[in-house]
Design a protein around this nucleic acid. Structure first.
Lengths: 352, 352
DNA sequence: GCAATGCTTGTAAGCGCTTACATTAGTCGG
DNA sequence: CCGACTAATGTAAGCGCTTACAAGCATTGC
């Protein structure tokens, strides 16, 4: 493939001495390759004097192990794959940032792909990352075809689910209970006296997090107003503009909802902006809530009442769980706590 | 669709049959390993009939090449490393998203690390990613020790600089002219009649983008009010809270600036929030501008006048440039256009 | 002082794939 | 129908590292 390199590359390629190999180091240090390898990978299996001599040579020659060779011989790459829906949403980007930082602390490197919330793309990415030598994977949410789980098991690739958590057995997960989190918020909304409540959610098919959040609102409605309580639900992909459009539709309904719970802050911020553009007051005319507690939520005016998701902890914990699994340790799922952040966008329903 | 995967890692590891190798496929298909390899990597060097037979066997056996072996033998990993300051800032996260999508389109995978704006950490990450087999690198900005560039050249690793661009020769870059972009905005500010102007910037040491933006404001000031024109400059790391604190300090100065240009939207949003908390009106009492045009900028109230940075184009172009370099093609730097987005946070100075 | 014991180090066999080169099959003009 | 030439396929040599096993060596107990 890489036949003739371009000007820049070929220049660099021209007179470049091949980088030193283990063998070169071994020869220079007057020991065997095995000893050099041990100095690097299991220093205490080599006597101090030898080790120092070898490491000095390593430093002098600027030796760095060849990745492919190491992967081939050791059957591991110290590389972890993560497939997240998108980095466009700050909550995932920041979770990933924390994940990467913690991985780095364990000598692991992060391989990234995004699925754009498309299950088949996610499946393809999973295969790609495994083919690229990922030693373990981080996946978001539980919803995916059984075949994917089977594949993972068959290949024996450890994986951790994040952004969701369920009691009982099942895949290892580091996340939070989406249903419980949203339920708490919805209960607060109903406790304020709202009756006409609507939800703007991401499409719930193939998305357990979104689905559980919606169900939580339905549960809360049933608890507050009996099984008959109906709430409108609008499903649109996560995007500010979609939140705005969905809100416009809801505000045109009769009777108009007095509270709109959104599936995440991005939708909520769009809804909020549109509401104000329509000349309505938040929360007097309508209350709006979000989910995630990203920066947008505090900046919005009025600031969004939302559910704070511990994205950084989640990323960090997931990374250290993976590190533990890879070093042969055992691991348990971790349930993290969310909390409701009360801000200006939620209030009691206005008296008509 | 829903699944209960019984993921016990140790279980999965127990009796797993080894995945098929090239040799297995070759034997099953009744050809040599070379032919199988060619079917996969250079299909047109194999006659159709053989190819179909081999590919069928590949599919049936679920063969996937061993990454390490491939990397070792082919001396390439189809993996690209990117080192960005942080994913916490949406502008980088989104640029990276576009970068990854385009890489995927070329069959390349993304390896990610973040430097937290620390040069030595960046240098370490560069070495790590190269050691991990990255075929090429994406780096942000030009500022880094000469030794790093030397190392890159010595190792013959192609790299592309993003988020900045300079005329003339030098490293390949896909970015925009930070100085020109900020100059345009600053000129508008001065044209409105502002005289007491301040800047809230990220620390400019080791950060060419930040530095050029500050210098652009100084240039504009000199052009508008003569060489003596002094503007206050506050340097704080990018963070909403830091923007807020810096703004509070500036608002306590006498004379109070009538316009504050911020190094990015994150700082600007913090500055804006604090200004309003202080009871001041934007833009009547003080104008505020940002840089990047992330979502926060439109959501802020008043919405931020800012510089729109084509993050997605940048990511995409950088990825395709890298793909071209790796396939032996030649590449040129790309200069992208920014544009000023006028919104409510900038106005003429209030008459005292 | 000698064998047993426990470390340290060396030897060498792969790991699975790519690819230069050798070999064989196929094509075509004469 | 044959020889020359080209296309298709096979052979086998690594790529650089890890690690099981072997060998060497210094202690230690008797």
């Amino acid at each position: 493939m890489l036949q003739k390199a371009n000007a820049q590359v070929s220049q660099a390629n021209r007179h470049r001495p091949p980088s030193p190999t283990l063998q070169d180091v071994a020869t220079a240090a007057g020991v065997s390759t095995a000893t050099v390898s041990r100095c690097l990978n299991a220093p205490d299996r080599v006597v101090a004097k030898t080790r120092e001599k070898v490491l000095r040579v390593v430093r002098e020659m600027g030796y760095a192990p060849n990745f492919g060779a190491q992967a081939l011989a050791a059957k591991r790459t110290n590389t972890i794959g993560a497939i997240i829906p998108t980095m466009e949403n700050a909550i995932f980007a920041r979770g990933l940032q924390a994940f990467q930082e913690e991985l780095a602390r364990h000598g692991l490197t992060l391989l990234v792909a995004s699925s754009s919330y498309q299950p088949d793309l996610e499946e393809e990415q999973i295969r790609t990352l495994i083919a690229r030598g990922a030693d373990a994977l981080l996946l978001i949410g539980f919803d995916r075809a059984q075949g994917v789980y089977d594949y993972l098991e068959k290949r024996g690739i450890p994986y951790v689910i994040s952004w969701a958590h369920r009691g009982g057995s099942g895949p290892l997960a580091v996340g939070f209970d989406n249903r419980a989190a949203m339920r708490l918020l919805a209960d607060k909304v109903f406790a304020l006296g709202h009756e006409a409540v609507a939800v703007i959610s991401a499409p719930v098919a193939q998305n357990d997090r979104a689905r559980e959040r919606v169900e939580a609102v339905q549960d809360a409605a049933a608890a507050a107003h009996g099984a008959g309580a109906a709430i409108s639900i609008v499903e649109v992909p996560y995007a500010i503009e979609n939140g705005a459009r969905a809100m416009a539709d809801l505000m045109a309904q009769t009777p108009r909802p007095t509270a709109v719970l959104c599936g995440n802050d991005v939708l909520a911020v769009g809804a909020l902006a549109r509401t104000r553009a329509l000349g309505l007051d938040v929360p007097r005319d309508v209350s709006i809530t979000g989910f995630d507690d990203i920066e947008l939520a505090q900046i919005a005016d009025p600031a969004l009442t939302t559910v704070h998701v511990p994205h950084a902890d989640m990323g960090r914990e997931a990374a250290s769980l993976i590190a533990r699994l890879l070093s042969g340790g055992t691991g348990e799922s971790v349930a993290l706590e969310t909390r409701i952040v009360m801000r200006g966008s939620l209030g009691p329903p206005g008296k008509p």
